[in-house]
Amino acid sequence: MHKIVILGGGYTGLSAAVNLAGRVKRRDDVRITVVNAAERFTERLRLHQVASGQRLADLRIPDLLAGTGVEFVCGWVTGVDVEARTVRIDDETVLGYDTLVYALGGVADTGSVPGADDHAHTLNSAQDAAVLARRLATARTVAVCGSGLTGVEAAAEIAEQHPGLDVVLLGRDEPGAAMGPKAKAYLHATLARLGVQVRGGVEITKVLPDSVELAGGESVAADVILWTSGVRVSRLAAALETDERGRIVTDAALRSVSHSDVYVVGDAALVRQGFGVLHGTCQSGMPTGVHAAVSIARELNGKQPKAFRFGYYHTPVSLGRHDAVVQFTKPDGSPRRLSLTGRRATWYKETVSSAPWPTYGQMLKHPRVTSIWPRGGRHTR
């Protein structure tokens, strides 16, 4: 029996699980186990909605995996022994594996600035987002630290759902810095319409309970502080070769360069392409999960895995529930001339960030079709 353990039941982990299940469903010598901290599936793309007080659909991982032959284990991964090929769950259960898929993702890097870990909220989980939602109900001012896409979407959502709040968006870069002129201008105009105060080109040096300190001595007062800047990976990956940010270094087939029986997908992986290192998004994450499934199936059949290839297609950004901007991109992520704004962009964004259940269902029925991605991206085997 070849034992395959997939750590993480998010977008990438479930992409690997359901696609692999479809590929090995006629075999009785393969066992697939998915380990996740909760039964409920976390729509990370929509946690800013939870933070603003909205409720999402109750999607359950065991329901998705029912009838696939995949075993689900609910629990926290507390240890990975890559030499013994074992995983410890809740410090009590030990699972052995022949092939491991590491899909535990990353969290906001609150350790990079003093005080952020102690005083800032994050969108690392549904629970974190729910705590923030309760805090916003009594707040007057909110500082969103990080001007990337997560910060932009969170600031816009909070401002729309809580029009009485003063929302300030802080970051080193201007929001939409990687977009073309038209899309960037629309993004800034919409943030202004929503009342979001944008402070780009600033460096945050310290987070206090009621303020954010900037380089140069300026202080920005805030009742609530949300940290969305940077990503760090769990220390569970320390036994594998990692980069300075804790991401696991992979080979061309997405295997750990230090342990070839470990595939790494999603935010936890350092994946190099011809244009550079992939940045963690669902757009690239789900294809890495499917590629791992394809590669494992090839190895089970005595073949060598092929190199992973990927190109970006778009950058869709929600600006509250009724507005959005979509920047179409070249494979390396640089902007094309084409973009969408307003109602068309809202429909497009809602379509590509919808619940992944239908996509997973198609993977189970047609596991060899790997080129259709509702979240965009171009992936080939």
Rank of each mutant, 00 (worst) to 15 (best):
2 H>T: 15
6 I>W: 02
6 I>D: 06
8 G>R: 06
9 G>Y: 04
10 G>P: 01
12 T>N: 10
13 G>T: 11
20 L>P: 05
21 A>Q: 08
22 G>V: 08
25 K>W: 08
28 D>Y: 13
29 D>M: 05
30 V>G: 00
35 V>M: 02
37 A>N: 01
40 R>M: 05
40 R>H: 02
41 F>Y: 14
43 E>L: 15
48 H>D: 04
50 V>Y: 06
51 A>C: 04
51 A>R: 01
53 G>F: 10
54 Q>D: 12
56 L>Q: 12
62 P>Q: 04
69 G>N: 08
70 V>G: 02
70 V>M: 03
72 F>W: 07
72 F>A: 01
73 V>A: 05
73 V>Y: 04
76 W>L: 14
77 V>E: 04
81 D>M: 07
82 V>G: 11
83 E>G: 09
84 A>E: 10
88 R>D: 09
91 D>N: 14
93 T>G: 06
93 T>V: 15
97 Y>T: 13
99 T>K: 05
100 L>N: 06
100 L>K: 02
100 L>F: 03
101 V>P: 01
106 G>K: 00
107 V>H: 06
112 S>V: 12
119 H>P: 03
122 T>R: 00
125 S>W: 07
133 A>C: 04
133 A>F: 06
133 A>D: 05
136 L>M: 05
138 T>C: 08
139 A>K: 03
139 A>W: 03
139 A>S: 04
142 V>R: 06
145 C>K: 11
147 S>L: 09
149 L>V: 14
152 V>K: 01
153 E>T: 07
154 A>N: 08
155 A>S: 03
155 A>P: 06
157 E>N: 01
161 Q>R: 15
161 Q>F: 09
164 G>P: 02
165 L>S: 05
169 L>V: 04
170 L>D: 06
173 D>W: 07
178 A>N: 10
184 K>G: 09
185 A>C: 09
189 A>K: 15
192 A>T: 13
198 V>N: 04
201 G>P: 00
201 G>T: 11
201 G>L: 12
201 G>N: 12
207 V>T: 08
208 L>T: 15
210 D>W: 05
210 D>H: 11
212 V>M: 02
213 E>W: 09
213 E>P: 08
213 E>N: 12
217 G>Y: 04
217 G>A: 00
219 S>L: 14
228 T>C: 02
229 S>G: 06
231 V>P: 00
231 V>M: 13
232 R>D: 00
242 T>E: 01
245 R>P: 00
247 R>L: 02
259 H>F: 11
261 D>T: 11
268 A>T: 02
270 L>F: 13
270 L>R: 15
277 V>T: 15
282 C>N: 09
283 Q>F: 03
285 G>I: 03
286 M>L: 13
293 A>G: 04
294 V>T: 13
296 I>P: 00
297 A>Q: 10
298 R>Y: 04
300 L>T: 04
300 L>E: 01
301 N>Q: 12
301 N>W: 09
305 P>V: 12
306 K>E: 10
312 Y>C: 08
318 S>A: 15
318 S>V: 13
321 R>L: 15
322 H>C: 12
323 D>F: 05
332 D>L: 00
334 S>Y: 07
335 P>V: 07
341 T>E: 10
346 T>I: 15
346 T>Y: 11
347 W>D: 12
351 T>K: 11
360 Y>D: 01
360 Y>S: 07
361 G>V: 10
365 K>G: 12
374 P>E: 05
377 G>L: 06
377 G>W: 03
377 G>A: 00
381 R>K: 15
